[in-house]
Amino acid sequence: MRLPTEAPPTARIPRFTRAERWIHRTTALLMGVCVVTAAALYVPEFAQLVGRRALVVRLHEWAGLALPVPVLAGLASRAFRGDLGRLNRFGPHDRRWLRAALRRDRRRAERPAGKFNAGQKIYAAWIAGATLVMLGTGLLMWFTHLTPVQWRTSATFVHDWLALTIGIVLAGHIGMALGDPEARRGMRTGAVSREWAEREHPLWRD
C-alpha cells in the first residue's frame, strides 16, 4: 500500500533581521503614543474621556522627542543601513510601478519592484521628513521663551495640520498592511514565502 506523500513546506527566505524588526516595532509604538495623546489633546470627546491633560502633554512631548532614537540606534546595524540605501534609491522600475499603480493596473509584469516597491519608498521618505518637521515645530512650541510669538504661532499651525495628515497617512499604511498577511508575517518573523517575494517583489535578490 502506497502512503500519500506530504506536500513540501513552503520555502521561506529571510527579509528583515531582528534589529530591523525591533526598530520598526519601537518606532510604531512611539508613533502610536504620539497619535493617541494628540487625539486626547485636540479632540474634545477624547479629552473629556482621558482627563489629566498635563500628563498627556508630557507623554506626547517625550514620545515625540524619542521618535528618532530607534532609527538613529539602528544605524549600528549593517542590514538596516543597507535597507535605508534601498529605500533611498529610485530607479526606472519604480517609475513604472507608480504608473501602473496610478492606472490601477494589477498585472505582475507592470509592477516590478525590488525589496521595496515605489509606494513603500515614497512613504518612508515622506514619514521621515514629516517626523523631522514635527520634531522641529514641537520644540518651538515647547520652548516658548526662546522664540518670537510669530514663530510659535506658525509652528503650531504647521504642527497641527501636519499631525492630521500623518494620522491619515498612517491609517493608509496600516490598511495596506492589514490587506497583506504575508508582509505582516515578514515583519513579525523576519521571513517570507518565496512565492510572495517572487510575486510582489520580483526584482528582489535574496
Rank of each mutant, 00 (worst) to 15 (best):
W142K: 12
T165I: 08
A128C: 11
G179D: 13
W161D: 00
V149A: 15
A125L: 12
G119Y: 01
I174C: 09
A124E: 01
A118Y: 05
A125W: 14
A155S: 08
V169W: 06
H159S: 13
A177R: 03
I127F: 07
I174T: 05
L146E: 12
L162R: 06
T165M: 04
A130C: 02
T131K: 02
L178K: 03
G167F: 03
V133E: 12
M134F: 11
A171F: 04
G129R: 01
R152W: 02
G172L: 07
T165V: 13
A163R: 13
T144F: 10
Y123C: 04
N117I: 05
G129L: 01
I127N: 04
P148A: 06
M134S: 12
V149P: 00
L139H: 07
I174Y: 11
T165W: 12
A125P: 12
R111Q: 08
T147A: 07
F143T: 05
T165H: 05
G136S: 01
I127Y: 09
A177D: 08
G179Q: 10
L135Y: 09
M141N: 14
A118K: 02
Q150I: 15
A128W: 10
N117L: 06
K121R: 08
A118P: 05
R152D: 03
F116R: 03
H173I: 06
A128Y: 11
G138K: 08
I174G: 14
T131R: 02
F143K: 08
T131V: 10
V133P: 02
G119E: 11
S154K: 05
A128M: 10
H145V: 01
V158C: 02
L162S: 06
G172N: 09
T144Q: 14
A155G: 05
A118G: 05
Q150H: 15
Q120T: 02
I127W: 08
K121W: 11
A130K: 03
W142L: 14
A125T: 07
A171S: 01
V169P: 10
I168N: 06
A171N: 00
T131Q: 11
R111N: 07
P112K: 00
P112I: 00
W126T: 15
P148V: 11
R111V: 09
H173G: 14
T137S: 13
I174F: 14
V149K: 14
F157P: 00
T144D: 15
L132K: 04
V169A: 15
G119L: 08
T131D: 03
T165N: 08
M176F: 12
S154A: 14
G179V: 06
L140Y: 13
N117C: 07
V149E: 15
G179K: 12
A155F: 09
Q120I: 06
G129C: 02
N117Y: 02
P148H: 13
P148R: 11
G136E: 00
T147Q: 01
I127E: 09
V158S: 09
D160T: 12
G114E: 07
T165P: 05
T144L: 10
L132G: 09
A125I: 04
A118Q: 04
G179R: 14
V149G: 03
G114T: 02
A124G: 03
Q150T: 15
W161I: 00
P148W: 09
L146T: 06
W142S: 15
I122A: 13
L135C: 04
Q150R: 15
S154R: 12
G119P: 07
L178D: 09
W161C: 00
